[in-house]
């Protein structure tokens, strides 16, 4: 299986003339492929690797270059620099929506789009390739004997408020000023529920620590620095070893993020990109992703089985999240909640 796979590892220095910051580059497939598909993504290489390998086995002669970057850099690469990528996969739904809205995406074939549930696509430009819940993680030492795992935000607020000594400085969440995903989650939370601002105030009073990324938060909980991580992407929480911590999908609502893919207008190999996307959306590939990473497949049934899951609405409403004036106002309120006298 690895016979056709040439892993070049980190190739930061080998990539010429890319003005945006990339985190990692990996080439799959033969050394001199007939056609090389380049994918720009925010998703860790390891998670998609089984799918990429399986696809290349089916399409001998093809190669795939996988470039990883942060969501802001992914957006900048396509919108501002017109970088030549064939497929863009990002967890930043708002930025992906803006790319599609502003005309940077190529229309996908009708049959590919028609197979997707309405909530998992926007027009024929943007499709969801994976869905993942935004969860609460608890260290095992967060709860004393006899205490129940909080099931709603109200429970969580009560737990934090009743035990300020235990949780002071040991609650973590995304920094919405720093992280696009964190801002998206906070804004969605604020839209969906009034409890969000109460929770923010409680966390502010407990000197909550703010993180740029889910991975850091999970590490901090595992290392015992944090007892509670709020709004953590399920993918990362479940991908590693989960002993010592509990993953909670809050029952009042649990946001579900859609990782979306689009083919940029400037794509050099759009047909190959559609081919890969088609495979990525197939049941087989979705099963591979689910097995390897715990990332839930894109399926409507998941929301019927779990009524607390709320997919973040994939439509131009997300553009309002990116409005700088609204954003400043939201962040000002957030800071006011966090920094209490």
């Amino acid at each position: 299986m690895r016979g056709i796979l040439f892993a070049f590892g980190l190739m930061l220095c080998a990539l010429p003339a890319l003005a945006f910051d990339i985190e990692a580059t990996q080439d799959f497939g033969p050394e001199a492929p007939l056609q090389r598909l380049s994918v720009l993504s925010t998703t860790d290489t390891a998670i998609l690797e089984p799918v990429i390998t399986a696809w290349l086995e089916r399409n001998p002669g093809l190669g795939l270059r996988y470039v990883m970057a942060s969501s802001q850099e992914v957006y900048r690469a396509i919108a501002e620099e017109g970088a030549a990528f064939d497929l863009v996969i990002s967890s930043a739904m708002d930025l992906q929506m803006k790319l599609a809205n502003d005309g940077h995406a190529l229309a996908l074939p009708a049959d590919l789009v028609a197979g997707q549930p309405v909530w998992a696509r926007w027009r024929d430009l943007l499709v969801s390739v994976a869905q993942e819940p935004v969860v609460l993680i608890l260290s095992d030492s967060a709860l004393r004997a006899g205490e129940e795992v909080p099931r709603t935000r109200r429970d969580l607020i009560a737990l934090l408020r009743d035990n300020p000594e235990r949780f002071r400085g040991r609650v973590g969440t995304y920094d919405p000023a720093e992280s696009g995903a964190g801002y998206l989650f906070a804004a969605q939370d604020a839209r969906l529920s009034d409890t969000f601002w109460r929770l923010a105030e409680v966390m502010g009073r407990l000197d909550a620590r703010l993180y740029c990324c889910s991975v850091d938060m999970i590490e901090a909980v595992r290392a015992g620095q944090l007892l509670v991580g709020y709004n953590v992407l399920g993918l990362y929480a479940l991908a590693g070893h989960s002993e010592g911590l509990t993953v909670v999908e809050l029952e009042d609502f649990t946001l579900t993020l859609l990782r979306t893919g689009l083919v940029p207008r400037m794509a050099p190999e759009p047909e190959a990109a559609v081919g890969f996307l088609r495979y990525l959306l197939s049941q087989e590939a979705q099963a591979l992703i689910a097995r390897g990473s715990g990332l839930a497949a894109v399926e409507a049934a998941a929301f019927e089985r779990n009524p607390h899951l709320r997919p973040i609405r994939l439509d131009p409403g997300l553009l309002a999240n990116l409005d700088p004036v609204s954003r400043q106002r939201f962040l000002a309120e957030w800071r006011a909640a966090m920094e209490q006298p």
Partner: peptide, 18 residues
């Protein structure tokens, strides 16, 4: 300036407009 996501969602709903 209060840019409401709901407003944009509504405007885009008809025929999935940009």
């Amino acid at each position: 300036i209060d840019v409401q996501p709901a407003t944009f969602s509504m405007l885009a709903a008809m025929g999935e407009e940009r």
